[in-house]
Design a binder for these strands. Structure first.
Lengths: 195, 195
DNA sequence: CCTGTTCCGATGCGACCGCATCGGAACGGC
DNA sequence: GCCGTTCCGATGCGGTCGCATCGGAACAGG
């Protein structure tokens, strides 16, 4: 058995480079050459890992989707003792990617979201992550309040976080304002859970 | 005075072509050549109207932004007799661009939104439209319910519509589902306007 | 050491990009 | 009819793109 490399690990390395470039200059800046340079590998290596550029982007989308959902799951595991309501709050805050620390992920996510509007393959990848997050939120909301349709509130909450994140990214809201709006929405949810 | 053309009218014609291409294939499909072909003018004519491609995109953004806000204003003028609450509902529905008829505008809007995350000039253009819509909604909400901070609810509502629109575009929600979620949010707002 | 296999860096290709240039068509003023 | 101005279609340029190709480096088994 000759030279062997960890293809999956390399794929993740390249996906990180893709996301970094998208964060800084948008999706169209993720060219094969620039991605290779950013990941500090040769273009040939990138082409070995992914047959086409589209395949690379799809993998990068799944990669960042997994990062976000994994962080959400981790957040849950790390705080099992809190009340269900505050858990939902923390989780929504995490998903909204409002923290400056996660601004890069938010920008990348938004870029993929727009691309998915005209690319069914990317849309399918995004839906996988969204469905995961919705399941998570639905279960939590069902625990937190007595409502006949927890999924309804989960869907609304997810749309709100996405909208707020976008508005923060273009400077229409400050992170603090978005945080406040999100908190207020949740407060109203706990106070009046009725369908 | 030699040959004269209506530059503003031509600019709008080209902007429509830009938006049509973005709707169908995304922002990067709006190349000078394809835009010219779509608008049925020569590439030279496009370059005469806009010094650079970036200038063309900015104009197209302002163009579609004006279309959306103008439709919102028109909606208001057309229905002055209704209750303030239902007026807000209709307006939010209009802004959310949920109708299949406005799907093209929604996709174009989302494409610009993502681009604005890495392009300050586009972000400024978007903020102009958003601020206009927020003013509109804030005034309406102040009329509809007694709340100490109508702008707060306007901002939340706008973020929700944007998120719902995006989720519809990627197929995560059906238009009917989004419509229902939006309606439910407004119902809760009228029932419990307290800050 | 040699061989067979895996991997990759370099290079080339055809296509397309934004932009600049320019010759001539179109048309009002004289 | 000629002129001056405005406009635009065609063309070319330098650059970058995604992708295909290939020679050789790296390395395990014989």
């Amino acid at each position: 058995m000759p030279k062997q490399v960890d293809h999956d690990e390399r794929r993740r390395l390249i996906a990180d480079a893709v996301c970094a470039l998208i964060d800084e200059q948008g999706l169209e800046a993720a060219t094969l050459r620039d991605v290779a340079a950013r990941a500090d590998v040769s273009m040939g290596a990138v082409q070995r890992c992914f047959r086409t550029k589209g395949e690379m982007l799809q993998f990068a989308l799944a990669h960042i989707g997994h990062q976000v959902t994994a962080r959400a799951h981790a957040r849950l595991r790390a705080a099992p003792a809190q009340s269900p309501a505050s858990t939902v709050g923390h989780l929504a805050h995490e998903i909204a990617l409002l923290k400056t620390r996660h601004r890069a992920q938010a920008r990348t996510w938004l870029a993929f979201l727009a691309a998915a509007a005209v690319d069914p393959a990317l849309a399918a990848g995004l839906r996988t992550s969204y469905t995961d997050l919705e399941t998570l939120l639905t279960d939590l909301i069902a625990d937190a309040v007595d409502t006949p349709d927890p999924a309804h509130h989960a869907h609304t909450l997810l749309a709100l976080t996405d909208g707020l994140t976008a508005h923060v990214l273009i400077g229409q809201r400050t992170p603090a304002e978005a945080e406040h709006l999100l908190h207020a929405h949740l407060s109203r949810l706990w106070a009046h859970p009725g369908e």
